[in-house]
Each structure stands twice: as C-alpha cells, then as structure tokens.
Simulated assay, not measured.
Amino acid sequence: MNPRISFVAAPLLVLAYGVIRILDGLDGSRGPGLAWTTGHLAFMAALVLFVQIFWRMRAMAGRNALATVTAALGTVGVATLLAQFGIDIVVGFMAADHAAMGPLFDQVRSVPGVRLAVYDGGPFLFYLAQLGLVVQLAARRRIKAWTPVLVLLDLALPFADKDLIPVGAVLLLVSFLPLARRADEGTARPAAALA
C-alpha cells in the first residue's frame, strides 16, 4: 500500500471509530452489537496502518537507532491494542447485552499478565512511539514544530473525554498531511541525505 494513503486513512479510520462510538452510546450503553463491532474493526484497521506509518517515519528520521527502537516499541504497542480490541469484539459476540459484558471482561483481565500487557502498559507504547517519532522528525526539521503539538493534543483528548476522539482524529489528520506529502522521502533518498 502506498504510504501516503496510510497517513490519511489511519486518522480517518480513528475518526470513524470515534463517531461510531458516540453513536453506539446514544442509547445509554456501548455494545454489544453492530456499532460496537464496526467501530472496533475501524480502529483495528487504523492500527494495522500505523505499523506502516511508524516504519515510514523511522525511514524519514534517518533509520537511526533511536528511530528504530521507537518504531519497534510502537509496533509492540499496536499488537497489544489489536489484542485489546480483539478481546472487545469477542466479548461483544459472547454477551447477550451490555450488562453481560462486564463479567466477561473481568474474566479476561483476571488472567495473569493480561491487565498489564493488554490494558495498562502495552498500549501506551503505541501512543509514546507515535509522539516520539514525530518529535524526532521535528527535531531533524523534517516537519514543522507544531506537528508534535497536534499529535500530543490528539493523544491527550481521549484522556479528558473519550467523546473527543473524533476531534483528536481531525488533529491527527492535520498533523499527518505534511507527512503524507513527504512519505516517499525515506525510501527515495539514502538515510544520509535525510540529515
């Protein structure tokens, strides 16, 4: 897939997830059902695209050790989020209604190591890597200094209120558009030319 498409499609899929999530909650509860599953699948598709985005940003940053480690940690974070959202979908299929989802989630989280790896720790690698790679690109003057600020806002908004995910996705799209235009640079030139 063309890397330019990933830089645009990933934020749009996160936007779709955020909007579907809001619509799913209009009846007072989220999941299970079509909206729950569709929204989660949209976010999972975005996560798959983020793997390509992380490695493309690594190339744009010069393929150095810091960029490589950051992209690798981001990929691990993607894997943990894919596991989390996969669990959400399975629980949605298994539960008869929203109330039945809670005990199922409790069973999953009680498995040793799952809470830390899939919920409390692992996913943060995705968010930290996203910010870390953008900061590296800004430090190398590959992108504007305001880009990490927009990415940070995108990452922070859901912590304030998850209904702000669509707003954060728009900010992410704005911050990724310059990256989409330069996405071929990491492969078109040798790493030394990126300095």
Rank of each mutant, 00 (worst) to 15 (best):
G102H: 15
F126A: 08
A59M: 04
G113D: 08
T75N: 05
L131Y: 05
P112Y: 11
G86L: 08
A59V: 02
Q130T: 15
I87A: 15
G62M: 00
L81V: 09
G113F: 07
F50Y: 12
V135F: 02
A100T: 11
G132W: 00
L157I: 06
V90W: 13
A192G: 13
L153N: 05
L73H: 00
K144R: 15
L49V: 02
H98M: 13
L177D: 07
W146T: 04
A169C: 01
L150R: 04
L133D: 04
A83N: 09
P190R: 12
L137A: 04
P123G: 05
A61I: 00
P148F: 03
G186I: 01
G92T: 09
F85Q: 13
Q84F: 13
L172N: 06
V167L: 09
A183W: 03
A192E: 14
V91R: 06
T75E: 03
V167I: 10
R58Q: 09
D184F: 11
L150E: 02
A138K: 02
I87C: 12
G102E: 15
L177C: 10
I89T: 11
L81R: 10
L173S: 02
Q84C: 12
L150V: 05
A67M: 01
A65K: 11
D97H: 09
V69F: 11
G186H: 04
A61D: 02
Q130A: 15
F159T: 14
A117T: 13
F176M: 06
V170L: 09
V134K: 00
P123Q: 03
A95M: 10
W55I: 00
A180K: 02
A95S: 14
T80S: 10
F105S: 11
D120G: 11
V69K: 09
L131K: 04
V76F: 13
R140D: 06
V114A: 10
G186A: 08
V174T: 06
L179D: 01
T70A: 03
G86I: 08
T187S: 15
P190I: 12
L81F: 09
Q107M: 14
D106V: 12
G168D: 02
L104H: 11
T80I: 08
A79L: 13
G74N: 05
L171N: 00
V48Q: 01
G132Q: 01
Q130V: 13
N64M: 01
N64A: 07
M60W: 01
R58N: 07
V135D: 03
L82A: 07
M57L: 10
R182I: 08
T70W: 00
L125R: 05
L73R: 03
L173D: 00
V170G: 04
P123E: 04
F159A: 15
L66K: 11
L82Q: 06
V48F: 06
V108W: 13
V114C: 08
H98T: 14
Q130F: 14
P103G: 12
